[in-house]
């Protein structure tokens, strides 16, 4: 893994990685990818991917309101709110 690939991953993951640490990050991710590359040797022809141990499927619930309004409680722990809205830096000038 090269430093420019790390920059792309960092963008995908929305995590800042400065140029000083990019080399170390690339090295450790390369070693992990080397480990997981052992998977390529496995014969998986015709094997269905397994996403749930018991192959359970998503349950559906009745389409009705079940949750009470907890906006004030949930926003009490937000970094910045105003008039019931979450505040972020200006997105459009």
């Amino acid at each position: 893994m090269e430093a420019n690939e790390i920059a792309k991953l960092a963008q995908l993951a929305r995590i800042n990685i400065d140029s000083e640490t990019a080399g170390d990050v690339a090295e450790s991710i390369t070693s992990i990818l080397a480990l997981v590359d052992q998977l390529q040797a496995a014969d998986t022809k015709g094997v269905a991917p397994m996403s749930h141990p018991m192959d359970a499927v998503q349950r559906l619930r009745a389409d009705k309101v079940t949750e009470p309004d907890q906006r004030a409680q949930l926003q009490a722990i937000a970094p910045a709110v105003e008039n019931g809205l979450f505040l972020v830096p200006k997105v459009i000038d």
Binding site: I6, A13, R14, I15, N16, I17, V25, I29, L33
Partner: peptide
């Protein structure tokens, strides 16, 4: 990007990056 870079530790960031890859 900075909240996540400063808020997460090294191993967590590493796994997020591997997962994103």
């Amino acid at each position: 990007k900075r909240s996540r870079a400063e808020g997460f530790g090294e191993e967590v960031k590493r796994r997020i990056l591997v997962g994103a890859y």
